[in-house]
Amino acid sequence: KRYRAVYDYSAADEDEVSFQDGDTIVNVQQIDDGWMYGTVERTGDTGMLPANYVEAI
């Protein structure tokens, strides 16, 4: 699945990823209600991200 960031996010922990509004997130997997795991296409960084900061595309 592919998602697009709708807000900027700065990683708060080493297992999270930072991204900017408009970034595409690929290979996304749902972890639980609030978190997903995926790769930021622009940077190649992979990690956890907050589900409410992205939307499906």
Rank of each mutant, 00 (worst) to 15 (best):
K1M: 12
K1W: 07
K1Y: 07
R2N: 08
R2T: 10
Y3I: 04
Y3W: 09
Y3L: 06
Y3P: 03
Y3T: 04
R4C: 09
R4A: 06
R4K: 10
R4N: 05
A5L: 00
A5K: 02
A5T: 05
A5W: 00
V6D: 04
V6M: 14
V6W: 06
V6H: 07
V6A: 07
Y7A: 15
Y7F: 13
D8L: 05
D8V: 06
D8N: 11
D8H: 08
Y9L: 01
Y9V: 01
Y9I: 00
Y9A: 02
Y9C: 04
S10T: 15
S10F: 13
A11F: 03
A11I: 03
A11Y: 03
A11Q: 06
A12K: 14
A12P: 05
A12I: 12
D13A: 14
D13E: 12
D13N: 15
D13I: 10
E14H: 11
E14S: 12
E14P: 13
E14D: 13
D15Y: 14
D15H: 14
D15L: 13
D15Q: 13
E16F: 08
E16L: 05
E16C: 11
E16R: 07
E16P: 00
V17S: 02
V17F: 05
V17D: 00
V17Q: 01
V17K: 01
V17R: 01
S18R: 02
S18W: 03
S18Y: 02
S18T: 08
F19P: 01
F19G: 01
F19C: 03
Q20F: 13
Q20C: 14
Q20D: 07
Q20H: 12
D21N: 15
D21Q: 15
D21C: 15
G22L: 03
G22Q: 05
G22E: 03
G22V: 02
G22H: 04
D23V: 02
D23W: 06
T24E: 10
T24L: 14
T24I: 15
T24Q: 08
T24Y: 15
T24A: 09
T24R: 07
I25V: 07
I25T: 02
I25C: 03
I25P: 01
I25W: 01
I25Y: 00
I25H: 01
V26M: 09
V26A: 08
V26H: 07
V26Q: 06
V26W: 07
V26S: 08
N27G: 09
N27H: 09
N27Q: 09
V28Q: 03
V28M: 07
V28Y: 04
V28N: 03
V28P: 05
V28G: 07
V28I: 09
Q29T: 14
Q29L: 13
Q29S: 13
Q29R: 11
Q29V: 15
Q30W: 15
Q30Y: 14
Q30S: 11
I31P: 04
I31W: 10
D32T: 13
D32F: 12
D33A: 12
D33R: 08
D33M: 09
G34E: 15
G34W: 14
G34V: 13
G34Y: 15
G34L: 14
W35G: 03
M36Y: 14
M36P: 00
M36Q: 03
M36V: 10
Y37H: 11
Y37N: 06
Y37T: 09
G38Q: 02
G38A: 05
G38C: 03
G38H: 00
G38F: 00
T39F: 04
T39E: 08
T39R: 06
V40F: 00
V40R: 00
V40I: 08
V40L: 03
V40K: 00
E41L: 12
E41I: 08
E41R: 04
E41Y: 06
E41N: 04
R42K: 08
R42A: 06
R42F: 04
T43G: 03
T43F: 02
G44E: 04
G44K: 06
G44H: 05
G44F: 04
G44L: 06
G44P: 01
D45M: 13
D45K: 14
D45S: 10
D45N: 09
T46R: 12
T46D: 04
G47N: 00
G47Q: 00
G47P: 01
M48L: 14
M48S: 06
M48A: 07
M48K: 15
M48R: 15
L49E: 02
L49H: 02
P50N: 07
P50E: 01
P50M: 08
A51G: 08
A51S: 12
N52Q: 13
N52R: 14
N52I: 13
N52W: 10
N52Y: 10
Y53K: 10
Y53T: 08
Y53R: 09
V54G: 01
V54P: 01
E55T: 11
E55L: 09
A56I: 14
A56R: 09
A56F: 12
A56P: 14
A56W: 10
A56S: 11
I57E: 10
I57R: 05
I57S: 07
